[in-house]
Amino acid sequence: MTFKLIINGKTLKGETTTEAVDAATAEKVLKQYANDNGIDGEWTYDDATKTFTVTE
């Protein structure tokens, strides 16, 4: 399955996707991606669209 991350950061905005077997696995990968890029904020997840959003 494809999961999307929408980034609403102070210095970085955009989106990325990852392939994962489930939402929990995708969340780990996407949170690591955000952490690697210095993004720390509030996370939400929409199961209907398989989209995570992080807002700083």
Rank of each mutant, 00 (worst) to 15 (best):
F52K: 00
G14M: 15
E42V: 14
T16G: 04
T44E: 09
E19D: 10
E27I: 12
I39Y: 05
E56K: 04
G14N: 08
Y45L: 02
Y45W: 04
D47R: 07
F52Y: 06
T53Q: 07
G9F: 13
K31H: 08
A24T: 09
F52R: 00
I7C: 05
T11W: 13
D46Y: 04
Q32A: 13
W43K: 00
A48G: 10
K10Y: 09
E42S: 10
E19Q: 14
N35R: 15
D46T: 05
G38E: 06
G38N: 11
G9W: 07
K13H: 11
K13W: 10
Y33H: 04
G9V: 13
N8K: 12
T25F: 09
D36C: 07
G9K: 07
T11D: 10
A23K: 14
T44P: 00
L30Y: 04
Y45T: 00
Y33K: 03
Y33N: 02
K10D: 08
N8W: 11
G41A: 02
M1S: 12
K13A: 08
T11M: 11
Y45C: 01
T18K: 04
K31Q: 07
N8F: 12
V54T: 03
Y33G: 02
A34F: 03
Q32S: 08
E27Q: 10
A24R: 09
A48V: 12
T2F: 11
Y33M: 05
I7P: 01
E27T: 04
D40Y: 15
T18R: 06
A34P: 01
K13M: 10
N37C: 13
Y33W: 15
L5M: 05
V21L: 13
I39C: 04
V54Q: 01
I39A: 04
T18W: 09
T2I: 15
L12F: 15
K50Y: 08
M1C: 11
L5P: 01
K50D: 03
D36P: 01
T16C: 12
T18E: 03
D47L: 06
V21N: 11
T53P: 00
T17Y: 15
F52T: 00
K4G: 04
D36H: 08
L30T: 01
T16R: 10
E56V: 13
K28V: 11
G38S: 07
A48T: 11
D40K: 14
T25D: 09
G9Y: 07
E15V: 12
T17S: 15
F3I: 03
A24H: 09
K31G: 04
T17L: 08
T25N: 06
D36R: 09
T51V: 06
V54K: 00
A26L: 02
N35F: 15
L5N: 01
G38H: 10
F52P: 00
E56N: 05
N37W: 14
I7A: 04
T55M: 05
A24L: 11
T11P: 04
T55H: 06
N35Y: 15
G38M: 07
W43Y: 02
E42K: 10
